[in-house]
Amino acid sequence: MSDIFREVEEDLRHERLRKIWDRVGPYVIGVAVLIVVGTAGYRGWEAWTRAQSEAAGDEYVNAIEAAEQGRTDEAELALHAIARGGSSGYAALARMRLAAIEAEKGDTEAAVKEFDTIAADKKVAPSLRDAASLRAGYLLADGGDRAEIEKRVSTLTADDNPWRHGARELMALAAYGAEDLAGARKWFQAIVDDRASPPEVMSRARMMLALVESLAGPAANAAGQDKQSEGQ
Results as ranks from 00 to 15, higher is better:
16 R>T: 03
44 G>P: 02
71 R>T: 00
69 Q>H: 14
69 Q>E: 13
171 M>L: 10
56 A>Q: 01
221 N>R: 15
104 E>Q: 10
184 A>S: 06
166 G>V: 04
171 M>I: 06
104 E>S: 13
79 L>P: 00
203 S>Q: 06
12 L>Q: 04
54 E>D: 09
38 G>F: 13
199 P>N: 15
154 S>T: 02
215 L>F: 10
2 S>T: 07
102 E>M: 07
1 M>W: 08
147 A>Y: 09
206 R>K: 08
52 Q>D: 04
77 L>H: 15
144 G>N: 07
120 A>Q: 07
212 V>C: 04
106 G>P: 02
20 I>A: 13
127 S>G: 09
112 V>C: 05
188 F>N: 00
165 H>Y: 10
178 A>N: 06
41 G>E: 05
153 V>P: 01
36 V>K: 08
89 G>A: 14
117 T>P: 01
143 G>V: 07
23 R>D: 03
60 Y>N: 01
65 E>H: 10
142 D>G: 12
183 G>Y: 10
12 L>K: 04
112 V>N: 01
213 E>F: 15
23 R>S: 11
75 A>C: 04
193 D>H: 13
151 K>W: 04
139 L>T: 02
36 V>F: 11
26 P>D: 06
148 E>R: 12
170 L>S: 03
21 W>P: 00
193 D>E: 12
174 A>W: 06
37 V>W: 06
96 M>S: 03
91 A>Q: 01
53 S>T: 06
49 T>H: 14
164 R>L: 02
232 Q>Y: 15
71 R>E: 08
181 L>F: 08
144 G>L: 06
74 E>Q: 12
134 L>G: 00
93 L>P: 01
227 K>V: 13
21 W>A: 07
44 G>N: 05
177 G>H: 08
149 I>Y: 06
53 S>I: 04
114 E>L: 12
28 V>S: 05
155 T>A: 15
3 D>R: 10
13 R>T: 03
43 R>S: 11
13 R>N: 04
202 M>A: 12
192 V>H: 04
100 A>R: 08
131 A>T: 03
172 A>L: 04
154 S>M: 11
37 V>A: 13
88 S>P: 01
230 E>S: 15
109 E>S: 10
171 M>V: 07
126 P>Y: 15
94 A>L: 03
206 R>L: 11
193 D>Y: 13
132 A>Y: 05
40 A>P: 00
11 D>F: 13
166 G>T: 00
83 A>P: 00
126 P>H: 12
78 A>S: 11
4 I>A: 14
40 A>K: 09
181 L>T: 03
32 A>W: 07
100 A>Y: 05
95 R>K: 13
178 A>F: 12
111 A>C: 06
179 E>R: 11
180 D>S: 09
200 E>T: 10
18 R>C: 05
134 L>T: 00
221 N>M: 13
7 E>F: 14
45 W>Y: 12
145 D>Y: 11
73 D>M: 11
99 A>D: 01
32 A>P: 01
8 V>I: 14
124 V>W: 05
8 V>P: 00
197 S>M: 11
232 Q>I: 14
182 A>E: 10
223 A>H: 04
12 L>N: 02
231 G>D: 14
199 P>R: 11
17 L>Y: 05
184 A>T: 04
226 D>E: 12
